[in-house]
Amino acid sequence: MAELAGFAANGGSGLYGYSRNSTFQRKAIEGAKELIDKAIAEKLEINDFSSTKAFQVADLGCSVGPNTFLAVQNIIDAIELKYKKCQGQSSSLQLPEFQVFFNDQISNDFNQLFTSLPPERRYYAMGMPGSFHGRLFPNGSLHFVHSSFSLQILSRVPNEVVDKSSPAWNKGRIHYTNSSDEVFRAYEAQYEKDMERFLNARAQEIVHGGLMALILPCCPNGKSHSEAFVNMTIDLLGSSLVDMARKGMISEEKVDSFNIPTFNASLSQVEAIVKRNGCFRIEILKSLPQEKPQPKVLSSTMRACMEGMIKQHFGYEILDELFDLLSKKFEESFSSSEPEIEISLFVLLKRKYNK
């Protein structure tokens, strides 16, 4: 989608590159390691893949590293350990070679990704550009799929929120947080549609018995979407843009036509979508508490993720002032609140044999 052409995280090694400003996402991957280990040890049926010569892993929404390399290494370490334990019971079971597919949008900086590949890796690396909302791989070709902090990104901004004649027109805001019920429902409907497409595509690509591990920024059950930390950060970005429009630095029309295409679902929403799809069994569904980042770190993290999209819509001239203003708003809003928040959701799915 043209609307998402700028949503790829900043590449390169500059001050606001993703590789230097993604410790927040990295901590979620580190927090999920124990669950990944447990999932592979208990849920991966190695005997089903005894004839597999190449065990194929995909990381969807890989960005530019280094987080994707950490996630992949955690997965491969756990799979190798599982094979070694099973080899004690079956001498004919051989450890396969590993092939890893790194996927992201075509605008992702794959040059940086492959330049920074770990030199001592124990896998063959492949790039797979394209949207994970559709098919990417042949039928039954993947054994393990991973995706972290990517599935909240929608395939497009919902049409209704940018239509002036629609009840869901999102005038003066850039997200569904604190917007009308009509805006929220438009975002929610787009998320459900995108997740259904994602699950259907993966159901065709993942072998029966294969696993998929997802880490999603979430809205905790029982908490309104306006109170969820991730949504509050986007709302403050929106208020920063409104402030700049009031000062005449950007036009109100530009703000009215700008919407962030993300939806942070609750645990119960994700559970309902997976069950309705019917192709996967939920093995683990667990919230991951994380330490809240410092305001300046949080501002830089958001800049690394969203700068391209903002620059595409408003121009590069506003970037420094916008994110300085956002950092100040974070200081005012988050400095005295609780240090730990439920921000991430870990989901482990197993491809059903009967679908």
Score class of each variant (00 low, 15 high):
Ser251Tyr: 06
Leu285Thr: 12
Thr262Asp: 01
Leu288Asn: 08
Asn259Gln: 10
Ile284Gly: 07
Asn259Tyr: 10
Met249Ser: 09
Ile273Ala: 03
Ala272Glu: 10
Glu283Asp: 15
Arg246Met: 05
Asn259Asp: 08
Lys286Glu: 14
Lys286Met: 11
Ser257Tyr: 06
Phe263Thr: 04
Val270His: 00
Thr262Trp: 09
Ala265Pro: 06
Thr262Arg: 02
Phe258Thr: 04
Cys279Trp: 11
Ser266His: 08
Lys247Trp: 02
Met249Glu: 05
Pro289Gly: 03
Pro261Leu: 11
Ile260Trp: 08
Glu253Asp: 12
Val255Glu: 06
Lys247Ala: 12
Asp256Ser: 03
Glu252Met: 06
Ser268Trp: 00
Ile284Cys: 12
Gln269Phe: 04
Ala245Thr: 05
Lys286Gln: 13
Ser251Trp: 04
Lys254Gly: 14
Gly248Tyr: 12
Ser251Gln: 04
Ser257Trp: 09
Leu288Met: 12
Arg246Ile: 02
Gly278Val: 13
Phe263Trp: 10
Glu283Ile: 01
Ile250Val: 10
Val274Trp: 05
Arg281Leu: 14
Ala245Gly: 00
Ile284Tyr: 14
Phe263Tyr: 15
Lys247Phe: 00
Asn277Thr: 03
Ser266Asp: 09
Val274Gly: 00
Lys275Gln: 14
Arg246Pro: 00
Asp256Tyr: 04
Asn264Ala: 02
Ser287Tyr: 06
Arg246Ala: 00
Gly248Phe: 10
Lys275Tyr: 01
Phe263Arg: 07
Asn264Pro: 03
Ile250Glu: 13
Cys279Ile: 00
Ser287Ala: 13
Lys254Phe: 08
Ile250His: 09
Arg276Asn: 05
Ser268Thr: 04
Glu252Trp: 05
Ile282Ala: 14
Ser266Thr: 01
Ser266Ala: 15
Phe280Leu: 08
Pro261Ile: 07
Ser268Val: 03
Ser251Asn: 07
Asn277Lys: 03
Lys247Leu: 09
Phe263Ile: 00
Arg281Trp: 07
Cys279Thr: 04
Pro289Leu: 08
Ala245Asn: 06
Asp256Thr: 07
Lys275His: 13
Cys279Pro: 09
Ile250Lys: 07
Lys286Arg: 15
Glu271Met: 01
Ser287Asp: 14
Glu283Arg: 14
Phe263Gln: 11
Ser266Glu: 06
Ile273Met: 02
Arg276Ile: 05
Phe280Arg: 00
Glu253Ile: 10
Ser257Thr: 07
Met249Asn: 00
Ile260His: 11
Met249Thr: 02
Glu253Tyr: 02
Glu252Asp: 02
Glu253Gly: 03
Thr262His: 10
Pro289Cys: 08
Gly248Cys: 05
Glu252Arg: 06
Gln290Asn: 13
Asp256Asn: 15
Asp256Arg: 10
Phe263Asn: 04
Ser266Ile: 13
Pro289Glu: 12
Lys275Trp: 01
Asn277Ser: 13
Leu288His: 07
Ser251Met: 02
Gln269Arg: 14
